[in-house]
């Protein structure tokens, strides 16, 4: 069952800082940033204002893992963006408070870049 209606906008990464800047001026609250990577990078930015839930979708190719940071408008985004640097190997430009890929120390570099297996492994698990 749906809990709330959700609104989506798709935009180019070059247009991202300006759009986020406008949202910040209008008083939207940054709810979360979610990265995912299957065929291409897809980053979702969610905002909330007066119980309205808006998500921006930014997609770009795996060959060019560069993304402008939004810490200029929302400083709190630094934790999400550093996390994306670590997990996806993205490069964030203009990131205030940059841990340079050392926010988490991981057993495996950029673990989320792997494409998921088509079929689930047998019960008991196979470690990756």
């Amino acid at each position: 069952m749906m809990i709330e209606e959700q609104f989506w906008e798709t935009l180019d990464r070059a247009a991202l800082p300006a759009r986020v800047g406008t949202l910040a001026k209008e008083g939207w609250r940054l709810v979360q940033i979610c990265g995912s990577c299957h065929e291409a990078f897809e980053i979702l930015y969610s905002f909330d204002k007066d119980d309205r839930f808006l998500s921006l979708r930014v997609a770009f190719s795996k060959d060019d893992p560069v993304l402008p940071s939004i810490t200029e408008s929302y400083f709190g985004a630094f934790s999400y963006e550093n996390e994306m640097q670590d997990l996806f190997g993205l490069k964030l430009t203009g990131l205030k408070l940059n841990f340079n890929g050392n926010f988490y120390r991981l057993a495996k570099k950029n673990p989320f870049l792997d494409t998921p297996p088509a079929v689930a492994p047998a019960p008991g698990g196979v470690s990756s």
Partner: peptide, 14 residues
């Protein structure tokens, strides 16, 4: 941070 990072989100894929 990262002392308790278990990579739980990734487990959903398995």
């Amino acid at each position: 941070i990262g002392f308790i990072h278990r990579g739980l989100e990734k487990m959903a894929e398995k």
